[in-house]
Write a protein that binds this DNA or RNA. Structure first.
Length: 489
RNA sequence: GGCGGCGUAGCCAAGCGGUAAGGCGACGGCCUGCAAAGCCGUGAAUCCGGGGUUCGAAUCCCCGCGCCGCCUCCA
């Protein structure tokens, strides 16, 4: 394989840079996962899928990736929520972690190397806080410990903020415990009834940002290659992580910060107050996981992605067509000896172009939208070739087999699209969609057969009657030489 | 107020200095018992507007206009 270099946008420099890991072929990657206080939504899925593709692509390029995706399982939001619902905080956390993991599994997101949880790293967190206190960068105050932002002059370098300006525009609640409003908590003392761990500063729990610094250090070392998350984490979360980690270790914390864009719903921000959260439960019930994946990859990862029923439906149609092609591809049987026709030669060229362009696209700041475009171009070419060739030759079928394999190696392995067995895909999709209209696949198959029979007997009235009835259920029939293919809209 | 992003056909979306990928949809023709599918063809006088740089700009610079995000918890 030709050596491909990855170019990727680095939030630190605000530029697209050539990716060079610290110790190749090893790559260390840390991604902020979830705080387990609510059900997973499309935004969580976007993060997981985007970094999953990056993870897969880095491996494809030959890197040995150590991938950490953390779970924050203790913080204020969790405590509030468990009080609200009257559930023990640990039970609450377990419930949402399970939902998250199930959603990611459905989406075929690969497991990271490690998935550490904050509550299981309290001693590492305490050690790190102590180190910051010892170095004079943090101070204890009435059972809390705060990071003193003024002591870390480069604070703000990631988000392009200056300490002075931050102080002027401060909207953080003023606390008498802090020396400066910008100082952020490393350790919070426990109020009665709250979960706590023993520490040198009394009973309490970690602040929000420190767990990431501690766990990144433990699993990946002082300097990590890639740190990722949503755009919304740039400030203050990642800014604070930098301050903590670099303050403690005196080494650059991260070489490449990678942030993805946020999801909007019908053009509006997805938020609690608007009540427009698109949950994974809803989506997975309604759409095939690969449709969701493709939808998430249909826009550059840094741009906002607008969710709407229409937008994802469009992608569903594209993926349906793609899977129809895979279905026919699998069924191809050579009907005669022979070499490649001119059309087949053209197909071969398109395919070779595809392999090149597909990888080029991903290498260029993970341009998944372009890569998908290339995939669909190839797919259409294949579809056309098969659909209008009544007798495919032996050589042509060999070519088609190669293309099928190639799609699995590229789109399948890296994007996670096209990995299902086509028959299986259709079985599941038909099943799922028919449930909502109260029909079974068997019933429909029977009607389709009846119509085929009626057509052979030239009983077109009956045939059309059946077709119209099916169409009213949203079932579309496609007659081919060999069989009638159908799907539910 | 500070920082950042975006504005490309009906919709979604690539392209980021050399003359507009792809998806969804639409239209005309062929095919078809009729459709669907497929095939062939049509579709952005032009990339929000106005200046400028350049042999050449959707792509770079400046000025507007319009959206949006972050600055507080958030993927």
């Amino acid at each position: 394989m030709e050596k491909t270099t990855l170019k990727i946008y680095n939030t630190l420099s605000k530029k697209i840079e050539t990716f060079i890991p610290l110790n190749p072929p090893k790559v260390t990657m840390y991604v902020c996962g979830i705080t387990a206080y609510d059900s997973p939504h499309l935004g969580h899925a976007r993060s997981a899928v985007v970094f999953d593709v990056l993870y897969r692509f880095l491996q494809y390029l030959g890197y040995k990736v150590i991938y950490v995706r953390n779970i924050t399982d203790i913080d204020d939001k969790i405590i509030n929520r468990s009080n609200q619902e009257g559930i023990f905080w640990k039970d609450l956390v377990e419930k949402y972690i399970k939902e998250y993991e199930e959603a990611l599994e459905a989406l075929n997101v690969l497991k990271p190397t490690y998935e550490p949880r904050a509550s299981e790293h309290i001693s590492e967190i305490i050690d790190l806080i102590q180190k910051l206190i010892d170095k004079g960068l943090a101070y204890e105050s009435d059972g809390d410990v705060y990071f003193e932002v003024q002591k870390f002059p480069s604070y703000g370098k990631l988000s392009g903020r200056k300490i002075d300006e931050l102080i002027t525009g401060v909207r953080i609640e003023v606390s008498e415990k802090k020396k400066n409003p910008l100082d952020f908590a490393l350790w919070k003392s426990a109020k009665p009834g709250e979960p706590f761990w023993e520490s040198p500063w009394g009973k309490g729990r970690p602040g929000w940002h420190i767990e990431c610094s501690a766990m990144a250090l433990k699993y990946l070392g002082e300097t990590i290659d890639i740190h990722g998350g949503g755009l919304d984490l740039i400030f203050p979360h990642h800014e604070n992580e930098i301050a903590q980690s670099e303050g403690a270790n005196d080494k650059p914390f991260v070489r490449y910060f990678i942030h993805h864009g946020l999801i909007t719903v019908n053009g509006e921000k997805m938020s609690k107050s608007l009540g427009n959260f698109v949950t994974m439960e809803y989506l997975l019930n309604k759409f095939h996981p690969e449709v969701i994946r493709a939808f998430l990859l249909s826009t550059n990862y840094r741009s906002p992605l607008d969710y709407s029923e229409t937008n994802i439906k469009n992608m569903e149609k594209a993926i349906y067509h793609f899977y129809e092609t895979l279905y026919w591809l699998k069924k191809v049987q050579p009907l005669r000896e022979g070499l490649l026709s001119d059309k087949a030669r053209k197909l071969e060229r398109v395919w070779q172009e595809f392999e090149k362009k597909f990888l080029e696209a991903l290498s260029d700041d993970l341009n998944t939208a372009l890569a998908l475009g290339q995939l669909f171009t190839l797919e259409n070419e294949v579809y056309n070739f098969i659909s209008r060739n009544p007798a495919i030759t032996t050589e042509e079928s060999v070519l088609l087999e190669k293309i099928e394999k190639s799609i699995k190696q590229t789109a399948g392995k890296i994007l996670g699209i096209g990995i299902s067995d086509p028959s299986d895909f259709w079985q599941k999709e038909r099943d799922k969609k028919l449930k909502s209209v109260g029909k079974t696949v068997e019933e429909i198959e029977k009607l389709v057969k009846e119509r085929e029979k009626a057509r052979k007997e030239k009983n077109f009235a009956l045939a059309d009657q059946i077709r119209d009835n099916l169409q009213n259920l949203g079932i579309i029939l496609k007659d081919t030489r060999t069989e009638t293919f159908w799907y539910v809209e």
